[in-house]
Design a protein around this nucleic acid. Structure first.
Length: 326
DNA sequence: AATGCGTACAACCGCGAACGC
DNA sequence: GGCGTTCGCGGTTGTACGCAT
């Protein structure tokens, strides 16, 4: 640390840096298990580690802490990351809260790798587009362009459905809203065929909570097209009419077929998932649920949501998970 | 086999917010 | 309220590894 007035301890000569050894890991783990987290500067000293407190904290949080997942980000997790990033941007720690077992660092690294990939491919794409355009201009006459047809970018398979990017060129917004065929920011290697995505979404849509209908009956709330809210590319958003975004109370993701909800009390976003397999596929609610159950949802720990009660009618029920039929 | 390149992951750094005295 | 300390976040860098050439 260069700063002496704020934060952590001043740099000491001989303070270890770089990769942690198994012995250091052991010392830190034993100490934290015994004394708990916090007071990282004293942890470093007391545990006999020649490390900065900051380094200790980072090692614990990102690597040693129990419950951390190892291995690749699953497609489901990727979907969550994409959606939450669209919502919050680079709020990695916030995003990490909704991916149990994943750290902000992990998510940040993952996004960065994939974002860079996308950036590169879009650069290539731009170059190619420019080339094609040039060729076309040379071949065609200037008055030939037809603005009545909506054109979807199809020349690069990796960019189907991009909305936040430039790949989707939609000239008629209302049509898009009607069809509920909206893209969402996907990475280049996530090339779901556009039409397939549409069919699947429509086919499964009836299985989801029909929050829209119920919620529209609630005074003070309105359904809006996703395109009305910056960052959202899919589905239908239910907004509080009096307090506009980000006070979104529910968001059904058409692309991911998950239910996301924002707590009215704490503002936290929750992905409703199976308590057994943690699947976040198509979760069906069996019971007289309305959006009001979201108030209760947050009393459950993290993703362990299986049985919740409706705050309106007090009825209880359960969710059935498509992944494990639980 | 050697080298270069891309990717994934770990760790560091700077900064600001929160906290306690 | 001011000041020093602690903590956490986001950006950046370093490194190991796998794969292609």
């Amino acid at each position: 640390m260069v700063r002496s007035m704020m934060g952590w301890e001043a740099p000491k000569i001989g303070l270890r840096k770089g990769p942690w050894t198994p012995q250091e890991d052991k010392l830190l783990t034993e100490y934290v298990n015994l004394h708990g987290e916090g007071r990282w500067s004293s942890v470093a000293k007391s545990a006999g580690l020649n490390r900065s407190g900051k380094s200790c904290r980072l090692r614990w949080v990102n690597y040693l802490r129990p419950g951390l997942k190892r291995g690749h980000i699953t497609p489901q997790e990727e979907g969550i990351i994409i959606e939450l990033h669209a919502l919050w941007g680079n709020k990695w720690s916030t995003i990490a809260r909704y991916l149990p077992g994943r750290t902000d660092n992990e998510i940040k690294n993952y996004w960065r790798t994939h974002y860079k990939k996308r950036e590169k491919s879009s650069l290539k794409q731009q170059k190619r587009k420019a080339q094609i355009l040039k060729q076309k201009q040379e071949q065609e006459k200037p008055d030939k362009k037809d603005h009545e047809t909506k054109t979807y970018e199809t020349e690069e398979a990796g960019d189907h459905g991009k909305v936040n990017g430039e790949a989707v060129e939609i000239t008629d917004q209302s049509q898009v809203k009607d069809e509920m065929v909206l893209g969402y920011p996907i990475s280049g290697d996530q090339c779901l065929p556009w039409i397939e995505q549409y069919v699947v979404d429509e086919g499964l849509w009836g299985g989801l909570w029909n929050l829209d209908d119920e919620y529209q009956q609630q005074p003070g709330f309105r359904e809006v097209a996703a395109s009305e809210v910056a960052g959202f590319g899919v589905g239908t958003l239910l907004l509080c009419a009096t307090i506009a975004a980000p006070k979104v109370d529910a968001f059904i993701s058409a692309s991911q077929r998950r239910s996301l909800a924002l707590c009215k009390r704490c503002g936290g976003l929750q992905v409703i998932a199976c308590s057994r397999c943690r699947g976040t596929g198509l979760i069906k609610a069996n019971g007289p649920f309305s959006i009001n159950l979201i108030d209760n949802l947050y009393q459950s720990e993290e993703f362990k949501v299986k049985s919740v009660g409706c705050t309106k009618c007090q009825a209880r029920g359960h969710f059935s998970c498509p992944d494990c039929s639980n």
